[in-house]
Design a protein around this nucleic acid. Sequence first.
DNA 1: TTGGGG
Length: 476
Amino acid sequence: MSGRLRNSNMNDYKLLQLQDAHSCINQRANIIAVVLEFGLPKTTKGTDCCCTLRLIDETHHQTGMSVNFFIENAESLPYVAAAGDIIQLSNVTLRTHIPEVNAVFYKNTSSFALYRGNDDDFVPYQGYSKVFIRHEDKIRISSLRKWLVNFQIPADSSDFPMLREIKEGHFNLAGKILHCWEPLKDNWSVYVWDGTDTPPNAITSMLEDEINHPLPLQLESVPLPRDVLCTLPTVGSILRVAFELPIEKNHLNVFKSGKWVQFINIRLKVYAGLWYGVFTSHSKLRHTPNENHLITERQRLYDDRILLKSGNMPIGSIPQSIDNLPESLRITEVNHDRVRHLTLMDVLTHSEVTAKFKCVVRVVAATPYQAEKFCTPAGKYRMRLTLEDPTARIHAFVVDEDGETLFDGYPGSLYVKRKLNRLLGVTECDSIVVNDRPRNPPWVSVCIKSYYVIKTDVWGSRNFRIFDTKIVDSPN
DNA sequence: TTGGGG
């Protein structure tokens, strides 16, 4: 190669800063920038798979610039490992997409390499088509790394509602990834937590159907294995996030347990009274450093919460003071005033099978529901309640003398049914029960006993029952 | 070619 040609090649090589992108429309460019957020691979109407990354640099960090990648297989699309990782793009084409400028990565002409943001080497952890790294590329990567140390992505708390504030629709969420697994083949689920409780939902299931079509205890068709369950926090709701599109293994690595992330434009829905999220083809993920102010704020709120005596009570049920109990917490009386309330996740993850707890729950279903079937032919109580709090659902039985305590003896089926309806939040109009309306069970305090049925299989035969709990007579 | 963002 002649000296002249080498010189001209060196002079031709230019790195484009994002602020200058608008001046290179329809031209090819080389860019080194920080990945702000990224979507997961999706299929297109053409022959390739596509994903979109949004990039920032020190010249353009308010909205950044998006890059669309078109590559024939999903595995080759970039999977961004951590917050602040840096991407080197060569030969991408700039296009206008009013009002923005974006870049397009074409599989035949472009190449990329991904570098760690918090390292000091220049070894990419993923790439497509060999990228040659020049001295000026290294300088650029180093200067972006330096810039990132003191840069914080502006994130307004009001753009990121907490789980306690969610509604059905599309929102951003900031939460900690707790777990990622595949309960059924090709059906991945990510568990997300922010230390607050999701709001309770109205229950629309028919009580008559509970025996044949019981309200589910969890969204998964297979419950989490106990060893995993026991690693999860027992305070605060855990949102299950599903994927609208099939997801490929490499891209699941972006959901690392223990890491906080920001979900952009995630869909929130309710099924059978249970909240869940959907990562759609329009959702994006932002890795978030643990020292991000949004994260430290949420972590501090949680730390303050668990220091409180009421920390394990559902957020919506916490009394202002002992003399100012919410009306619903007066519906039941429990025999153990001084015992601290625990969550249903505390109950589920307790280390012993035989144990007693006090919890604030909603009774979301009951079976049998016909007043004449509350008792066995021998005249003893035998029914099953479904209890819910912001952390879990369980079945709890009401049996024999515990039923006598709960319903105050055997006051007759009309009165027993009326008492049960108060727990269930069923509307009664002149004693005629309105069954086809959604019910909104109140928060009530109950004592729960955990026990086993089969001595040789104590965990496998673990059951729960209500005890030492009485439904107080209605004031009217 | 394909899709982007609001």
